[in-house]
């Protein structure tokens, strides 16, 4: 890339590399800030179902999530930056997941790991299965698979780091935690007589997508 980026106006990547060779590091506040954040994403130690085993595998010897700065699995949501929803969210569990999300301090991110967290997956037809955690909390990265391999989780993490690195620290595009009213508390559903109430967070999931049923050809 030779375009001057907004963070370092007037200087190209080549020139920057040239300077770096001489031991001079030129950077912007935004870049430095995001660089620091993106390499120490601490996940919450929170496993839901089968996918959690692959999440543990990702943090173990062979896959070693520590290479990406995320090996510090925190037991408490107060210390965590990343909620990895790793597995099936049942309706009985959904209020707790939302509560954990609300307890995490900003900036916080959410990865929906596996088909179940995305949409209910193989258990979608179940009466007690939530059809995707994005009905209640905002999801940053979706990792498909049943279960996704640990490599896929690592890829998802790298994508999240990419996303963090590209966040602006000021202006209208700034992330939630830098906005004045940057409160991302989601209403916690309640377990009712037949279903959870409400069945979705209206702000995130206004109505199911309008689709037309395809015909067999």
């Amino acid at each position: 890339m030779s375009d001057p980026t907004p963070t370092n106006p007037g200087i190209t990547e080549t020139e920057r590399d040239e300077l770096r060779r001489h031991g001079i590091l030129l950077t912007g506040l935004e870049e430095l800030y995001n660089w620091g954040r993106s390499h120490s994403v601490w996940p919450l130690n929170f496993g839901l179902a089968c996918c959690a085993i692959e999440m543990i595998a990702a943090s173990m010897a062979k896959f070693d999530i520590a290479r990406f700065g995320s090996e510090v699995f925190r037991p408490s949501p107060r210390q965590a930056d990343l909620l990895i929803v790793s597995g099936t969210v049942t309706k009985k569990m959904a209020p707790q997941v939302v509560r954990l999300w609300n307890q995490m301090p900003e900036p916080k991110y959410c990865i929906a790991m596996g088909a179940c967290a995305i949409s209910g997956g193989p258990f979608k037809q179940g009466y007690n299965v939530l059809k995707g955690i994005d009905r209640f909390i905002p999801v940053d990265i979706y990792i498909p698979g049943c279960p996704p391999r640990p490599e896929a989780l690592l890829h998802g993490l790298v994508q999240l780091q990419e996303k963090i690195r590209n966040q602006a620290i000021a202006g209208p595009d700034a992330p939630r935690h830098l906005q004045a009213e940057g409160d991302c508390n989601c209403p916690i559903p309640e377990c009712g007589a037949h279903d959870i109430e409400p069945a979705q967070n209206g702000a995130l999931w206004p109505k199911p997508p309008e689709l037309v049923r395809p015909t067999k050809s």
Binding site: A49, T90, K92, Q96, F123, Q125, G126, N128, V129
Partner: peptide, 14 residues
């Protein structure tokens, strides 16, 4: 119990 009750039996019957 029940936080991971995924209705395996009901799905299997269908």
């Amino acid at each position: 119990f029940g936080y991971l009750h995924r209705n395996h039996e009901k799905l299997a019957e269908n």
